[in-house]
Design a protein around this nucleic acid. Structure first.
Lengths: 161, 161
DNA sequence: GAAAACCCTGGAGCGACTACGGAGTCAACC
DNA sequence: GGTTGACTCCGTAGTCGCTCCAGGGTTTTC
């Protein structure tokens, strides 16, 4: 099985497969006489596992840890539960901040009515007002303590090193 | 005003400010005799504007376009509305996929009960089942057409070039 | 006068790819 | 036999938005 076929079988990109190999997430396959990579069904399984976990938005480092459990079935499973729990927690935190964000943007968007010049645009006024330190409708009205649960992933205000 | 003061005034990191200058998002300030950057209140405003937009999770490229409007107040404002609309759309798409994800992870997590060996772990079984192409409880039960609205940002299955 | 805190530059690193250049390989068609 | 096109190889660089570092100079504080 060549790399293109593996890609088709798993839905992964050819370049992604080579990348996974490079970082050690997938074992290096054998090679055909012409130097092409030759994959077996085990590779299909392993890659499918990785892609499924990625579809659950797990970082590669976490997937690597899960693969360890697949390889050592007699290990204690406590960590698996914790791993998924961590991932769930991350998703929930991100979810909450995105919900806040959505309200803020919706509020902002409602401030522009019909065609006019930038100087009279409610959105722009709002954004500039924030720059002046005035309380802004988008962060103020929609999310009273927006500063408390600031956008996590974008982490625009990482505060303290 | 030195860079540290600007950082404190806006909540941005010193390194982030230098980075913004490097990529041209902030104009290069004047310099004191000792070579230190010297900022004015205009810089504070502009940076505060940028940080506020970043708190709304806008990409820097979009913020740059918004800054253009701030600089040319007589331009037509239609694009501002569109810009914020785009951003809102992105957030909503991401929100939907995260909600799906949360259900999937919660389902997955519910499959591990108490301490046992990895070989008997429901979570691991589920994940491996997916690798075998079997319909999985996490993607199957929680999100009937999980394949249709696959995780957007992680974009694990970019399909077709 | 010494230590701490600040500032400078340039460059590397993060995660998870994605894209590119330049080359070799292979099957099909004319 | 020549040519096209699809596939593969490798290594490197670019993406985004920072973040961190080394190795130096400057200012402030004790």
């Amino acid at each position: 099985m060549r790399i293109g076929e593996l890609a088709q079988a798993t839905g992964a990109d050819v370049e992604t497969i080579r990348y996974y190999e490079k970082i050690g997430l997938l074992p290096a396959p054998g090679r055909a006489a012409n130097g092409y990579r030759a994959y077996s069904s085990e590779h299909v399984e392993r890659l499918a596992f990785v892609r499924h976990c990625r579809a659950l938005d797990m970082p590669l480092a976490q997937i690597e840890r899960l693969l360890d459990f697949v390889d050592r079935p007699q290990a204690d499973c406590g960590d698996i539960d914790a791993l998924v729990g961590e991932q769930l927690e991350r998703v929930r935190v991100r979810l909450a901040s995105l919900q806040t964000l959505e309200r803020q943007l919706a509020t902002l968007r409602a401030m522009c009515h019909g065609p006019h010049v930038a100087a009279e645009c409610g959105i722009l006024h709002e954004l500039v007002a924030a720059a002046h330190g005035d309380s802004c409708a988008c962060h103020g009205a929609a999310a009273p303590q927006a500063d408390a649960d600031r956008v996590a992933t974008a982490s625009p205000v990482p505060r303290a090193r």
